[in-house]
Amino acid sequence: MSSSDMSQTNLDHQTEVKSSTKPIVKVEQVGQTFKTRQGNFVALRDIALDIYPGEVVTLIGHSGCGKSTLLNLIAGLTLPTSGVLLCDNREIAGPGPERAVVFQNHSLLPWMTCFGNVMLAVERVFGRKERKSKLDARVHAALDMVHMAHAAEKYPHEISGGMKQRVGIARAFAMEPRILLMDEPFGALDALTRASLQDELNSVLAKTGATAVMVTHDVDEAVLLSDRIVMMTNGPAATIGEIVTVDLPRPRDRVELANDSRFAEYRATVFEFLYRKQLKKVA
């Protein structure tokens, strides 16, 4: 689906997608309990969520409510203690190359260049089928997409935090995943860098039509990027509180949106949820 027909009939599009296509990821009555020294800790309960192809879903909630826990479940890094998660109708039993992850702290391997880091992922997914020159081309294309082609031979410690995060995103996209999972990908960046990376992510998502689930605690980021915002209640035993569908035309321009009343409304809805309904009791 191109971004242009999304912008024309965005409302129809959303409902149409839901009725006609099958979800990529189904989360069915999932609960997660951690065994700790103080006994069992119920982090998540009764999570039910369907994610459709081409959708950008953000998970928002107060710190410690279980956003990362849910994302890790979808990634397959942890397994649920109750319920089941499906990806393409198959149970998620572990990580898989169709679900790429962008970590908050970029997690580039410091002993490899940016090229090497992306190549590690490319090799794993395409190494058996394709020749070396094709793999190289894939790596360069991925770095180019996030405007990091110039830093291919640099080591992670030689580039800035924002650039590292770009390379992390390139690594994830280079795997051509069915779904992109991101855990507060821009959380550690300063405001300006974050804004430019958000715009870049928006355009890359539009270009590739990728499905994405992103954890954030930034309300503007959530409204700017998402098709749906999943708002989670406070832990322990957190679950999905409300889901907002964001019917803003794409491509979205942050400057235009700043004066858009609908943008303000969505923002207000999320703020209302976070700071009225789920106000975190600070000890």
Partner: peptide, 25 residues
Amino acid sequence: QDYLNVARVLGLSEDKIITRILFPA
């Protein structure tokens, strides 16, 4: 743990984990 998580989400084989992640680390 971050590096091991990278290995897991990329689904690296055991020999790649040893040569590309464990050994350099």
